[in-house]
Design a protein around this nucleic acid. Structure first.
Lengths: 359, 359
DNA sequence: CTGAAAGCGCTTACAG
DNA sequence: CTGAAAGCGCTTACAG
């Protein structure tokens, strides 16, 4: 390893100016807007206009500057832009969904949308039940001035948070089962369609006694999934009776508990639509504890299609939610500031081994 | 909703100065370092010294300014500090671990360490196999100038990346099963201890024919876990024979495939140490397919203790890795620029229902 | 269509 | 122990 002291500087011979240092620094320094302006023979304001895609620039000038930007590999400093804009290039994902699979899938989708841009993804888990929830969110937005935030359920359903964000002039996109806000800031996941698909599937298999283990009633998705499910049954001449609907909490444990209740029903249902895959896994466990075999004794349909649902035994028939795609679209909406049709996201039934005709 | 146009401005009556606007803006504007300086009767440089915990400040001055900072709720603008420092307040988590549970747990740990600070967590999944991996990482660091990055395995083992980070003068903390770097930038997870615990447990249960399904040999953790395991067996008078070691890929599918090979061994092992929980789940599936019952016909010990491992049936005996705590410690090391003893992280055996004495 | 000046809210380098 | 000046790399507001 060559010594850094090969050419020792004699303290007495200090140069007047710091020219050598400047030259050395210049060699490795990344170019700034000033360098591009000088090399292009225009003002830095013009370079700025080109960076920001301003339409009022002469096309020849634009082409020339763009060429030099490409040649030098210049990329504007996000810190400096952020300071001048009074807005950072951070996109916040504020979430309270407890599922690791959901969170990571959505992060991947968001990242795919911002790849190659100056945007960065900042994660902010939260708990709406905490007394200082809104205060914390306010502090985050005021200090970081994020470009915008993405709100998956259930935090997307919080009107208090939406109000704070509007007050602080912070853009957002809300992801929810139904529209709760202006078209351009709302990505709708159409959970009623997913519920409907689950209902058609079980009814068409010939089941007559059908149950539903729902999520907590405070979630919008719960109502949507249930109503879509009930509508499908009705179309097939069946009814989802109140006593066959058991409220869970979207967790494995609640699925287990609801499974117990389910097996106590008379007549015992031959099929169940679980509000999500987590609860479906709990129902699997309950079935095993009761010596019941899936799907012979009970058909099960889940919701979400988490990667682990394929590994359940038997593999779970479920409604697939394209979580990564949802993240990608939501981020795109935020950046482009345009909405997508509310029909864009389509939950689809994924057939596996946990559902069959009744015995 | 009150109209915003209650007091319409007459275009002809425009005020000379923009005083009204300024006043209105001041009312809601967050205080800056200049406001604090003015209110405290000191220069902004002194306020800056206090923000940055400089020791060379008169204690009375410091107390007074701190009081005013507290009263006004002043928080320095991270964008401005970032620009002046030439370093942002972002902490990057660069990872290639495919497990959602691992990623989210670590994120939580990191977030708990930076809560209440100006630091924000930015996530950067990556793929070391991509040809432009190092180039992408370089671009990220050059542009964002993160305060530092956190490297969990296996990206933590990439010497090329570490070199690039050092070149760019970007602080990092590497999380790995053994020390690969200077003490202060290395968080060691002591996987050999975890392997040892697994080995003692199975040996003490009385198993004589014991197998190991390892992860891919390119991972450091694989060797550590295996060697610790083999050492424990040796201490108990047993030997981990080469033919009883099957190499997997840390995935469910590879666990399934390795399980098949495992059951073909003669004599058939009565116990297996899986390199991680994912592969243990695959072995479960293979056992079911072969009509073997766990733990009666095969004891299984995993590694990681992911939340889902409790839900396997029977629940999985495994070595618990405190992933959130690792994230918290790594972030703390990065911020404080100090190491922790290499013995800090202790993997611990967690006894559940998948291991018992041989028949 | 283009640019000179001022400013975003901080810190560094220097001087005292 | 403290401060005035210059600067970080951009954009806004204005003028032409």
């Amino acid at each position: 390893m060559p010594s850094r002291l090969k050419k020792p500087q004699r303290p007495g011979a200090a140069p007047k100016a710091r020219l050598p240092a400047t030259t050395a620094a210049k060699a490795k320094r990344r170019p700034t807007i000033n360098d591009i302006a000088r090399m292009s023979g225009v003002s830095k304001k013009t370079v700025s206009r080109i960076i920001n895609d301003s339409p009022v620039v002469n096309e020849e000038t634009r082409a020339k500057v763009k060429r030099i930007i490409a040649e030098t590999g210049y990329v504007p400093d996000p810190q400096a832009r952020g300071l001048a804009f009074r807005k950072s290039f951070l996109i916040g994902m504020i979430y309270d969904n407890p599922s690791a699979e959901y969170v990571v899938s959505m992060q991947k989708g968001i990242l795919s949308a911002i790849e190659g841009t100056s945007f960065q993804l900042v994660v902010r888990p939260c708990d709406r039940a905490k007394p200082n929830f809104l205060q914390d969110m306010r502090a985050f937005v005021e200090r970081q001035r994020p470009f915008g935030v993405l709100l998956p359920p259930s935090v997307s359903e919080d009107e208090g948070l939406a109000k704070v964000l509007r007050e602080l002039n912070c853009d957002y996109v809300r992801i929810a089962s139904v529209s709760l806000d202006d078209h351009d800031v709302m990505l709708v996941t159409n959970d009623h369609m997913g519920g409907y698909e689950a209902g058609r599937h079980l009814a068409e298999l010939g089941h007559k006694v059908i149950a539903h283990v729902s999520g907590p009633r405070s979630f919008r998705s719960v109502h949507e999934r249930r109503q879509g499910f009930a509508r499908a049954l009705k179309e097939c001449g069946l009814e989802l009776s109140e006593k066959n609907v058991i409220e869970g909490a979207y967790t494995f444990e609640s699925g287990l508990a609801c499974g117990e209740k389910l097996f106590a029903l008379k007549p015992r249902p031959t099929a169940v639509f679980a509000g999500n895959d987590e609860m479906a896994a709990g129902i699997y466990r309950a079935a095993r504890d009761h010596g019941l075999e899936i799907p012979r004794d009970l058909s099960v349909v889940g919701y979400d299609d988490f990667p682990t649902s394929q590994r359940l035994w038997p593999s779970l028939t479920t409604v697939r939610v394209p979580v990564a795609e949802i993240g990608r679209l939501a981020a795109t909406m935020l950046i482009k500031k345009t909405g997508v049709p509310h029909s864009e996201i389509v939950p689809t039934l994924t057939l596996r081994d946990s559902s069959t005709a009744p015995a």
